[in-house]
């Protein structure tokens, strides 16, 4: 259930464990991001040493002092109760999928289902990470799965290196134009 509170200026970063959500926020944030990471103790430990247990939090400062918060959800499913809370009132969703994790297409579909309402109300743009490590599935495979899922119009799906600010910024720009193609390039 969605509350009647005014929407926050925030962009939600979600996605699979090890996809680079924390790194992506750090790439974009104007301040050192606040991260609540802990040693990974479950299946996530096979993918990386630490994992986000509550959220990541970065800020984009706009002209005039206005702020846009960048919220990263924890990737592990046992923290999924937080996803709804963090997503509430978001401008849109950036979904990052770790291509080197087992069955990333299944994960993509799972996240699209979970954030179905947020996506319907706003928009989603998708970054596929670690494609340098694992070439399959390809972007074409991701597009095919999204088409099967019935998400229209098809969202942007880009190959992303979460450490590269340009890559992360491009995904967010695609999200903004998806919300409104009439935006003028500043």
């Amino acid at each position: 259930m969605r509350s009647d509170r005014l929407p926050h200026n925030k962009i939600i970063f979600s996605g699979t464990v090890g996809a680079g959500k924390s790194t992506a926020i750090a790439s974009l944030s104007d301040v050192p991001p606040v991260a609540t990471e802990a040693l990974a103790t479950d299946a996530a430990a096979q993918l990386k040493k630490t994992t986000t247990v509550a959220m990541d939090y970065g800020i984009l400062f706009l002209q005039g002092g206005e702020k846009v918060m960048l919220y990263g959800t924890p990737g592990q499913e046992r923290f999924s109760f937080m996803w709804d809370i963090l997503a509430e009132g978001g401008i849109g969703l950036v979904l990052l999928i770790n291509n080197s994790a087992p069955d990333p297409l299944h994960h993509l579909e799972k996240y699209l289902k979970f954030f179905k309402n947020l996506i319907a109300d706003t928009a989603v743009a998708i970054g596929i990470t670690h494609m340098d490590r694992t070439q399959l599935p390809t972007l074409v495979d991701y597009r095919g799965r999204i088409a099967q899922f019935g998400l229209l119009p098809p969202p942007a799906v880009f190959r992303v290196d979460a450490r590269e600010r340009d890559d992360v910024a491009m995904v967010v720009r695609a999200l903004l134009y998806t919300l409104n193609p009439g935006l003028i390039d500043a």
């Binding site: 984009l60 706009l62 002209q63 206005e66 401008i91 967010v172 903004l176 409104n180 500043a186």
Partner: peptide, 18 residues
């Protein structure tokens, strides 16, 4: 342009990113 949700904010974010 104004038909989308909070376009002025989107434009400002876009400007920042670009």
């Amino acid at each position: 342009a104004p038909s989308a949700k909070r376009p002025s904010l989107l434009a400002r974010i876009l400007k920042k990113l670009i």
